[in-house]
C-alpha cells in the first residue's frame, strides 16, 4: 500500500497558551512549535506498517507556514519517504484543508490516508472525516488498532462506552487516537538521512483550491478562572462541608 500522512504544525502540547490582550487570538510569537501529537501517532503507525511490509511508500504532507518543513523533516526522520509542503501563512480551517488534501490525494493516489483525529490547537476534530466525505471514501475515526484483512482494513475505534471495530473498503481514511501506539524518537543518523530525503514545496494555487475561511473569529478570550477554595483538616470536616455548606451530598 501507499500511505499519505498529513501533519500539522501546532504549539507544543507542553506550552501554556497565552491569549493576546487584543482578543485576536493566541500568542504564537517565540513559542515552541511541534508536530500535532495525534499526527505523530499517525506517522508512527505508517512507519510500522512499512516495517511490517503492509506498506511500501509513505508520503508526508503539511499545509502551513514555511517552517512546517521542520515537522515534515521530523516525519522523514521517523521513517517516511517523501515530503510535501503546501505553503500558506494564513490560518486554515478543516474544510479548506480537506479540500486541498483531496486534490493532493488525487495526484498521489494513496491506498490509505492516516492522520490525527484532531489538532490540539483548534480542537476541531473534522479534517479526516471531511476528506473521506469529499473523496467518497470510508472513514475509520479514533483508531486504537489498524489491521489489514482480506483486502479491507479493520479499524478498532474508541467510542463512548468502549470499542467498535469496523471494516473499511480501500482506499480509506483513518484518524488516530492516543492509544494506537507510542511514537518513536528519531535517531541522530535518521535525522541526518532525513535531510537528504525529497521535500517538495507548493502553493495552494497550484491545486486551484481556495482556502478562504468560512468561520469569522470574532474574539478569543481566557476562560473564566476557577478560584481555589478552602483546605479541610479531616474527612469528617469534608463530609460536613459537602452536606451542609455545598449541599451536594
Amino acid at each position: 500500500m501507499k500511505l499519505l500522512v498529513p501533519v500539522k504544525r501546532v504549539i507544543d502540547y507542553n506550552v501554556k497558551v497565552r491569549v493576546k490582550s487584543d482578543q485576536s487570538g493566541v500568542d504564537l510569537a517565540n513559542v515552541k512549535m511541534s508536530m500535532n501529537p495525534f499526527d505523530e501517532i499517525a506517522v508512527e503507525e505508517a512507519v510500522r506498517m512499512k516495517e511490517a511490509g503492509t506498506a511500501q511508500e509513505i508520503v508526508v504532507v503539511s499545509i502551513g507556514p514555511e517552517k512546517a518543513q521542520d515537522q515534515i523533516r521530523q516525519a522523514l526522520a521517523m521513517g517516511a519517504d517523501r515530503g510535501l509542503l503546501v505553503k500558506t501563512e494564513a490560518e486554515t480551517e478543516p474544510l479548506g484543508v480537506a479540500t486541498l488534501l483531496k486534490a493532493i490525494v488525487e495526484e498521489e493516489k494513496p491506498d490509505l490516508v492516516i492522520m490525527g483525529k484532531q489538532a490540539i490547537d483548534d480542537d476541531c476534530n473534522q479534517t479526516g472525516q471531511m476528506l473521506a466525505a469529499l473523496l467518497g471514501w470510508p472513514q475509520g475515526t479514533f483508531a486504537s488498532k489498524i489491521e489489514k484483512k482480506d483486502g479491507e482494513i479493520h479499524v478498532t475505534r474508541e467510542i463512548d462506552g468502549g470499542l467498535q471495530t469496523v471494516s473499511l473498503k480501500l482506499p480509506a481514511v483513518v484518524t488516530t487516537d492516543l492509544r494506537l501506539n507510542e511514537p518513536r524518537y528519531a535517531s541522530l543518523p535518521n535525522i541526518m538521512k532525513a535531510k537528504k530525503k525529497p521535500l517538495d514545496v507548493k502553493d495552494p494555487s497550484d491545486y486551484g483550491v481556495d482556502l478562504k475561511p468560512r468561520l469569522e473569529v470574532l474574539k478569543v478570550t481566557e476562560p473564566p478562572k476557577r478560584e481555589g477554595g478552602v483546605k479541610v483538616e479531616t474527612v469528617a470536616e469534608l463530609v460536613d462541608k459537602l452536606k451542609n455548606e455545598a449541599g451536594v451530598l
Partner: peptide, 10 residues
C-alpha cells in the same frame, strides 16, 4: 480551543 485554555467566539 487549546484544550479549554482559550475560548473562541466564531
Amino acid at each position: 480551543i487549546y484544550a479549554g485554555n482559550a475560548l473562541q467566539t466564531v
